[in-house]
Simulated assay, not measured.
Amino acid sequence: MPENDISFEVRKAAFKVHSALGPGLLKSVQEVALAHGLRQAGLTVQTQLALPMVYAGVQMEAGFRLGMVVQGKVIVEIKSVETLQEVHFKQLLTYLKLSGLKLGQLINFNIAHFKERMHRLVNGL
């Protein structure tokens, strides 16, 4: 399944979760619900996936955790904050670069109008 199709399924499942649960819940609750919805749609979902870092030719376990990886192709980072900050976007771009994946979704569940708070980021490789 291409990244764009996965991204569509992620957005669709995220809308369902937000409609059912609303804003104000912890990130961990939203993550579990979204992962469940994606699995129900037949997608493979890994949560809290460890991401090693290579520095100076040495692989290091730096403690990076990808919130969610869907179909092994799309990183989904979930936030539950009042306002997304520039650092949230930079974090996801760094994860994309370190993982070698092309597409990421940054989703903030702590808002009233959900549509305007989902962002697609592309790794320029």
Rank of each mutant, 00 (worst) to 15 (best):
M1Q: 14
P2F: 08
P2N: 10
N4Y: 00
D5E: 12
I6D: 00
F8R: 00
E9Q: 11
E9R: 05
E9G: 01
V10I: 15
V10W: 00
R11Y: 05
K12H: 13
K12F: 08
A14I: 07
H18V: 05
A20G: 11
A20D: 07
A20T: 07
L21A: 12
G22F: 00
P23V: 08
G24Y: 04
L25C: 06
L26I: 09
K27I: 06
V29G: 01
Q30P: 06
Q30C: 07
E31G: 05
V32F: 11
V32Y: 02
A35W: 01
H36Q: 06
G37W: 04
R39M: 13
R39N: 11
Q40W: 08
A41T: 06
A41L: 13
G42F: 02
T44P: 04
V45D: 02
V45P: 08
V45A: 06
V45F: 04
Q46M: 15
T47S: 09
Q48C: 09
L49Y: 01
L49C: 14
A50P: 15
A50W: 05
P52L: 10
P52A: 03
P52E: 07
M53G: 13
V54Q: 04
V54C: 03
V54F: 03
Y55R: 12
Y55P: 15
A56N: 08
G57N: 10
Q59C: 06
M60F: 11
M60Y: 13
G63P: 15
F64V: 13
F64G: 12
R65P: 07
R65A: 01
L66A: 10
M68T: 15
V70N: 00
K73Y: 06
V76G: 02
E77I: 11
I78H: 07
S80W: 02
V81R: 14
V81P: 15
E82W: 03
Q85C: 13
Q85R: 11
E86S: 13
V87S: 10
V87W: 05
V87R: 10
V87H: 08
H88Q: 04
F89I: 05
Q91F: 02
Q91C: 03
L92V: 12
L92M: 04
L93Y: 03
Y95W: 12
K97V: 09
K97C: 02
S99Q: 08
L101S: 06
G104D: 04
Q105L: 12
Q105H: 07
L106A: 01
N108A: 11
N108W: 00
N110I: 15
I111A: 12
A112P: 07
H113S: 10
H113N: 10
H113Y: 03
E116F: 01
H119L: 03
H119T: 00
R120W: 00
R120C: 00
L121R: 05
V122T: 09
N123V: 14
G124T: 09
G124S: 12
G124Q: 09
L125D: 06
